[in-house]
Design a protein around this nucleic acid. Structure first.
Length: 951
RNA sequence: GCCCAGAUGGCGGAAUCGGUAGACGCGUUGGUCUCAAACACCAAUACCGCAAGGUGUGCCGGUUCGAUCCCGGCUCUGGGUACCA
């Protein structure tokens, strides 16, 4: 038999695809488009691991399938090339980050090419190249020059706002004041905001880059700091970001995550007067029904009101408290929820009851949400309750039957009472008093809103948790801002001078004076007259001004890359009108769910802005989203006795659970052993190759091992995310080498549902490889000659084929690849049994497997001299399903007695229920189940079941 | 705490409409081939039982002729989020 020589086959077709530009995509108005996209990778030094291709393979199968259906499929790939690891590598080695980044990209490309993707590499983008970040800078400038018009609910040119200010007579004289005024409206603006400052990384971080109070990358502590930063007014789009979720096909869980992140809450703002002072403040509440239960007010420590309100006697205490709050890191605040706070000395007046209530300052109220001030209702809010108990403040229950002696009653269910307790406790407004007694909580909220609105005590307000994104970073390896400071006023470098290229620097660390790394750049000033970047020494504060030293964050370049693929070489625009109209938006986007509150929010925001500008043609960038699960790695541990070079086999250790640290600790003769990662290459099964470990890293050279009785060193194992630092990365290269790309593709899909995370396990890979060999064998006889002929296929073969077409088509549409591979296996077995050699069966079979295993498909397509006109199987028509081949004359069904299946029986396909029942009642097998029994009921559903209920 | 998803053999996982639970692969066992091993191929494989038969989709209950699937109540696991008023 002709051998399945995958190495030769795959090499041949990789060359062929490159030579004949098989995957080049050209806009073609006569064909329907389909846009498939993968989240582009960050090219890390560790290279591609087996987790990366999971999503790429899934989308490649879909792309190839759509292409065989006749769609013009755009399936591009590129690199998210700016990032912290490259910068840190540069700091360590002094080598420019571009060098390591490009080297990593080359390595990625080499690995990707082995797997046989149908990417159109002519459209590759890299976020760090000037021709790409030109348009990142351009979009930033557009945002700077736009504001969000609340009436039109869309972005508008800032000039319109200026005209309006002029018309209303509130346009200031000085340039500085004009700039300050507009900064409150621009979609990209400079703001003095509390930022997540990471001292170790020397930069600010966005909310989604902070996880559990430490930086996502590196895990360094993060503190709150007030800084002037570039921000994007993402919050302006809150409602549209929320509404858009209903129009896209994403998983419920990721939509829900985004809804929570946007955090819309409808509530009421109420104005509170401070007793004896000419100050009021506004509180926000979603529980307007509890106005009668307010016993104190609380301000956030960062609130500007704190200073105004604090009385002289309390000044010292308040100052000390503020100092204490500032000293706490984000992390400490998150972990430690002990009640802290201080009395300001002032009292606020409850406009509904007329009561005066003390105003406290406490860190449990956040400055960034609502108005930074709350009314506290300890009876019905657990946080207020804890605070009231701690400071001995009164607790007034307002819901019938609510017992608040032990804890607050937070539920929004029940009948309102005590509201008001008496007439004196309710202020008269225009002859009306608010009275909520007897209403449900829902009704009471609505009634209070009406009352507050009617008597101008406040307003109904919708708040969003979503914050504006901080858009500057104190780093080198990012997009430079196309901004200079003319007399201190941020000014845009003219659009036609873009891109402003990242300048060269000697050192990638911040300067000695604490400026960001770009402070090291000598040629970094803007000459207005000559319209170019010049040496800093020329700065004269007239026509030559300093350029921004910040760079843009990681999400800048990744927010609109999908648009650039539509027209990657365009030097005049981000995309041409023609290409934008043709490709519209991404039909299928594949990537990890970990981007739910980062990239996938920023991208939607960015696209909505470009949509308002008319550049993007669809309001939502990604119509359908599939989140591939993570492929986890098996991490291996060896256990080193503390203070020694002795490593003890896992099975000899005593494991104790440390409740305080919430982790296991290991002991050998009461000496503690620390788990240390060992590289998976030093391990086979659960045993360590001690020699390999000694050679792996110098720190193990002197290692001594305590082995178990069998003379083995057993390792500890854990399933974790694949990561370089855990030494559990399995790369796809070895699999390609040993089994071929087609087997790898098949196996990764066969592993389980695409959206599910699962540990990498090579155990089943042989099964996939065997299948491909069997599939290959369908086409050749013992002498290695083709067996394909032009004979008429048997009915059985046609049935097998069409069953397969139906199953595979439905599976691909549903991204359920793991179930279509078994279908191929079964069909292959059947066709082999049937000795099917007819071209009419085998040719469609090759077309069916092409999306999964393109190499073997191409080879067979060529070998059998496919009659279909397409040169490459990539363009082979997707076989049409025909029901007629599946029509059966009889149907075999399970026969149930009292709901229990007893035997199976063949029925004519067109039998009526009565005929089926009759047939069962007369059947010999039935008699034993009918004996001595009474028939209670007879049910038959054609094609489904027969059930005879007996007693 | 809140939100979301899930729980099926020794393992990964099928069952897409409420109708024969366990497809397919791995593993295991037996066999063929071989001097032998590997490869390959064939057969068996949910559990208990010699068998007839019985029990089985995390647990308890419900709806139904019939429930892995629908409803109510739990338990556990994974993920997200967390002073958001």
């Amino acid at each position: 038999m002709k051998e399945y020589n995958f190495r030769e086959i795959e090499k041949k077709w990789h060359q062929r695809w490159v030579e004949s530009k098989t995957y080049r995509v050209v806009e073609d108005e006569t064909r329907k488009k389909f846009y498939v996209l993968n989240m582009f990778p960050y090219p890390s030094g560790a290279g591609l691991h087996v987790g990366h291709p999971l999503g790429y393979i899934a989308s490649d199968i879909y792309a190839r399938y759509k292409r065989q259906q006749g769609y013009n499929v755009l399936n591009p790939m590129g690199y998210d090339a700016y990032g912290l690891p490259a910068e840190q590598h540069a700091i360590k080695t002094g080598q420019h980050p571009e060098i390591s980044t490009f080297a990593n990209i080359d390595h990625y490309r080499e690995q990707l090419d082995k797997i046989g993707f149908s990417f159109d590499w002519s459209r590759e983008v890299r976020t760090c190249t000037p021709d790409y970040y030109h348009w990142t800078q351009w979009a930033f400038q557009k945002m700077f020059n736009s504001y969000y018009d609340e009436e039109l609910q869309k972005a508008q040119p800032i000039e319109r706002l200026i005209e309006r200010f002029k018309a209303e007579g509130c346009w200031p004289e000085s340039e500085q004041e004009q700039s300050d005024l507009l900064m409150n409206y621009r979609l990209a603006f400079m703001g003095e905001t509390m930022v997540n400052w990471c001292p170790q990384l020397g930069t600010v971080l966005a909310n989604d880059e902070v996880v559990n109070g430490v930086s996502e990358r590196g895990g360094y502590p993060v503190e709150q700091k007030k800084m002037r930063q570039w921000c994007l007014r993402v919050s302006a789009y809150s409602q549209r970001l929320l509404d858009g979720l209903d129009t896209i096909e994403w998983s419920d869980s990721i939509k829900e995550t985004q809804r929570n992140w946007i955090g819309r809450s409808e509530g009421t703002e109420v104005e509170i007067k401070v007793e004896g002072q000419d100050v009021d403040f506004t509180i926000f509440t979603t529980r307007a029904d509890t106005m009668f239960g307010v016993t104190f007010f609380v301000l956030a420590p960062e609130s500007e009101l704190v200073n105004k309100v604090t009385t002289a006697e309390q000044r010292q205490g308040v100052d000390e408290y503020i100092k204490y709050v500032k000293s706490r890191t984000e992390r400490e605040r998150m972990i430690d929820h002990t009640v802290t706070g201080v009395f300001s000395g002032a009292y606020g007046i409850n406009p509904i009851t007329g009561d005066k209530c003390p105003i406290y300052i406490a860190e449990y109220v956040l400055a960034g949400y609502g108005t930074g001030a709350i009314m506290a209702v300890p009876a019905h809010d657990s946080r207020d309750y804890a605070f009231a108990k701690h400071f001995n403040l009164p607790i007034v229950p307002l819901v019938e039957g609510a017992d608040v002696s032990e804890e607050s009653y937070d539920a929004k269910e029940g009948i309102v009472t005590n509201s008001p307790v008496s007439e004196e406790k309710s202020v008269l407004y225009d002859g009306e008093r608010l009275c909520l007694n007897g209403l449900t909580i829902k009704e009471a909220i609505a009634e209070t809103k009406r009352f507050v609105k009617a008597h101008k005590l406040g307003r109904v307000k919708v708040n969003y948790r979503l914050r504006d994104a901080i858009f500057s970073r104190q780093r080198y390896w990012g997009e430079p801002f196309p901004v200079y400071y003319k007399k201190g006023i941020p000014t845009m470098i003219p659009e036609d001078c873009l891109p402003v290229e990242l300048p060269a620097v000697e050192k990638f660390l911040p300067t000695e004076t604490g400026e960001p790394p770009l402070g090291n750049a000598q040629i970094w000033a803007w000459d207005e007259q000559n319209r170019k970047v010049v040496d800093k020494s020329l700065i004269d504060e007239q026509t030559v001004s300093p350029i921004e030293l910040y760079t843009m964050p990681g999400f800048a370049g990744s927010s609109a890359y999908y648009l650039r693929y539509m027209d990657p070489k365009n030097t005049e625009a981000l995309i041409s009108e023609k290409n934008a109209n043709y490709w519209q938006n991404v039909d299928l986007y594949v990537g990890g769910s970990e981007h739910a509150t980062g990239h996938l929010i920023y991208s939607r925001f960015w696209n909505k802005f470009l949509f308002d500008l008319g550049v993007s043609k669809k309001e939502e960038p990604f119509q359908k989203l599939i989140n591939q699960g993570m492929i986890q790695g098996w991490s291996s541990f060896v256990y080193r006795l503390q203070g020694t070079q002795t490593y003890v086999s896992y099975d000899l250790l005593e494991v104790r659970y440390d409740n305080a640290a919430k982790k296991n600790r290991y002991f050998y003769n009461d000496v503690e052993a620390d788990p240390i990662y060992a590289d998976i290459s030093t391990v086979s099964g659960n045993q360590l190759d001690t020699e390999k470990l000694r050679q792996w890293m110098p720190e193990f050279e002197e290692a001594e091992f305590v082995l178990n009785q069998q003379g083995q060193y057993i390792i500890g194992q854990a399933i974790e995310k694949m990561s370089k630092s855990k030494y559990n990365v399995v790369n796809p290269d070895d699999i390609c080498e040993n089994y071929g790309a087609d087997t790898l593709r098949l196996y990764e899909m066969f592993l389980g549902p695409i959206e599910q995370s699962k540990p990498w396990d090579v155990a089943g890979i042989d099964g996939c490889f065997r299948f491909l060999k069997k599939f290959w064998a369908l086409f050749w006889d013992k002498e290695g000659m083709l067996t394909v002929d032009d004979s008429e296929p048997s009915a059985d073969s046609m049935k097998t084929l069409h069953k397969l077409i139906k199953k595979v088509s439905a599976d691909i549409e549903a991204f359920s690849y793991n179930t279509s591979i078994p279908a191929f296996m079964v069909a292959t077995g059947e066709l082999s049994q049937q000795k099917a050699h007819s071209r009419k069966v085998l040719e469609p079979l090759v077309a069916l497997i092409a999306p999964f295993c393109p190499h073997i498909a191409e080879e067979l397509w060529e070998a059998i001299g496919a009659t279909a006109k397409s040169e490459s199987v990539c363009d082979a028509e997707w076989p049409a399903f025909d029901e007629k081949y599946l029509v059966e004359s009889s149907v075999t069904l399970g026969v149930q007695f009292s709901g229990k299946v007893r035997f199976s029986m063949a029925f004519p396909a067109d039998a009526t229920p009565q005929q089926m029942i009759d047939q069962v009642m007369q059947a010999e097998e039935s008699q034993r189940y009918l004996k001595d029994k009474t028939v209670v009921k007879q049910i038959a559903v054609p094609g489904r079941i027969v059930n005879i209920v007996v007693k």
